[in-house]
């Protein structure tokens, strides 16, 4: 058991309750129809298109979350452009952050 500010966390009760929930779900599942789906029912339907060969049906990494990147396109343009990969720029970031921090540390004391 681990105490947190507003309660506790224990993995063992969590695991037990998950197992119980899974068992109940399986019990409910056994109440359903047991007939094997055969014929047209069991076939995949891809908008009427012919079935692709296996290696082409795999969704590659660059296609995943396409919409997310499209929505945040401008943020990603900035973020990738900032990471130039030139070592001098890394030092520029360091020095500018150093200057900003010095300003903050001194200005806060004045206020």
């Amino acid at each position: 058991m681990m105490e947190t500010p507003s309660g506790f966390w224990g993995p063992v009760p969590w695991i037990i309750s998950t197992v119980v929930a899974v068992v109940i779900a399986c019990l409910i599942r056994t109440l359903g129809e047991k007939e094997h789906k055969s014929g047209v029912q069991g076939q995949e339907f891809l908008m009427g298109n012919p079935r692709l060969p296996e290696e082409k049906s795999h969704i590659r990494a660059h296609n995943i979350y396409w919409g997310f990147f499209q929505g945040l396109r401008r943020y990603y343009e900035h973020a990738t452009n900032m990471h130039t990969g030139i070592i001098n720029d890394y030092i520029i970031w360091f020095l500018s952050l150093l200057a900003i921090m010095l300003m903050i540390v001194f200005v806060v004391e004045v206020i």
């Binding site: 296996e54 290696e55 049906s57 795999h58 969704i59 590659r60 990494a61 995943i64 979350y65």
Partner: peptide, 14 residues
């Protein structure tokens, strides 16, 4: 999920 989906799951590439 992206890594798992693209690298581990799916049909094995030839």
């Amino acid at each position: 999920v992206k890594v798992f989906q693209s690298a581990f799951t799916g049909p094995i590439l030839p």
